[in-house]
Design a protein around this nucleic acid. Structure first.
Lengths: 196, 196
DNA sequence: TTTTTGCGAGTGAATACTAACTAACATAGT
DNA sequence: ACTATGTTAGTTAGTATTCACTCGCAAAAA
């Protein structure tokens, strides 16, 4: 298990914010050092390379996300649909609290050239897909969801719809209501698959 | 209306290919010139800046896409669902024929720092959304689609599902069957909204 | 002859990263 | 209690390399 120092976390958060505000092109060791109020070489005391700053940042968020979702408390009586609602609510709320994260997590393309980074982004996406797919399968087995559509296709639709909502929120300059819009999309899909 | 010379189109296609293969970070005037077999200054005979190469490339594809979709022949008797099928089929087929385009069109984040470029990407996305939303509204008015979900939300779900399918195809290294997977997703959604 | 399209050889500004050094502090041996 | 030694976290001043872009000139096309 990775552990990070306070300074490392400070650096990772500053990096996330800069990417969110000005894009990855503007994330340089120089601008990053200025944001924190340190010299460039000081950053190299805490990370051995720029790549490692980005990698750690992704790892840090992945762990946070995994822990947060897995520790959502469910009663045994909770329906699969309600579990799905809780997972997405938690996820979208996190994005609202820290909008900068979205720019990094939803950016398969920006790390295209650095294999270890794009792999980390894929890992995060896969994790989210696993949560959703497991939910769908369970719900279909339990007879809570209909079986009009296969679980893989349904997962693609749900994750796709949510990602699209987040993208629109980002393009609106975070002015739209992400939690509400996300809920609307999810309820729409549930309306079509849930058996009441 | 913009017109491009043969040489300009050659440059734009080479740029698209390089972005697709190695990411935008690797698209430099030098590598681009080498791909075409010209010197760096020669490129500046055809475009006044690197930004303009990227802008033109987006404009070029946007126009192509608009014309292609609008010239799909429909009989008056064609159902809205069949129109939607035809539009997405045409779009996905274009991606399969020129996979490099996807890296550029689906890359809101890579142009984050250059306003005129991210605006162009938004324009392309908006255009696609308009086509879909118009189709949904018409279908609901004609009673071909049910009204369980509002047209905006449904548009988000459809576009989101298709984008997700394209993203998965890209991450698979273009090994999955995009046209087939896209059709499955669309049929899944139609199954839930179409009134037969 | 004039215009178009190419070239070799640059330019200044960034970029990630390094070298050499230092002040502040912790710890261990006597 | 005092000194020797090592560590942590920072500094200033660089390095080599890469970047988008330009200048002056030639050859070819119109």
């Amino acid at each position: 298990m990775q552990e990070f120092t306070d300074r490392q976390i400070e650096i990772m958060e500053a990096a996330t914010n800069r990417i969110s505000k000005f894009g990855i092109q503007n994330l340089t060791i120089k601008t990053l050092a200025e944001d924190i109020g340190l010299s460039e070489p000081a950053l190299y005391r805490h990370f051995k390379s720029k790549n490692q700053i980005l990698w750690s940042l992704l790892e840090y968020f992945k762990t946070e996300m995994e822990n947060r979702i897995q520790s959502i408390p469910f009663k045994t009586s909770t329906s699969e649909a309600d579990k799905l609602r809780a997972i997405f609510n938690s996820q979208l709320q996190t994005f609202v609290n820290k909008p900068a994260i979205v720019s990094v997590i939803f950016a398969e393309s920006i790390f295209h050239y650095e294999e270890n980074l794009s792999n980390k982004v894929s890992e995060i996406m896969d994790m989210m897909q696993e949560f959703v797919k497991a939910n769908i399968i369970k719900g279909q087995v339990k007879g809570q969801y209909n079986k009009l559509i296969g679980s893989s296709t349904l997962t693609t639709i749900i994750i796709g719809g949510m990602r699209m909502t987040v993208l629109k929120w980002k393009l609106s300059g975070h002015k739209s209501n992400l939690v509400k819009d996300g809920k609307t999309v999810l309820e729409g899909i549930l309306k079509m698959i849930e058996i009441k």
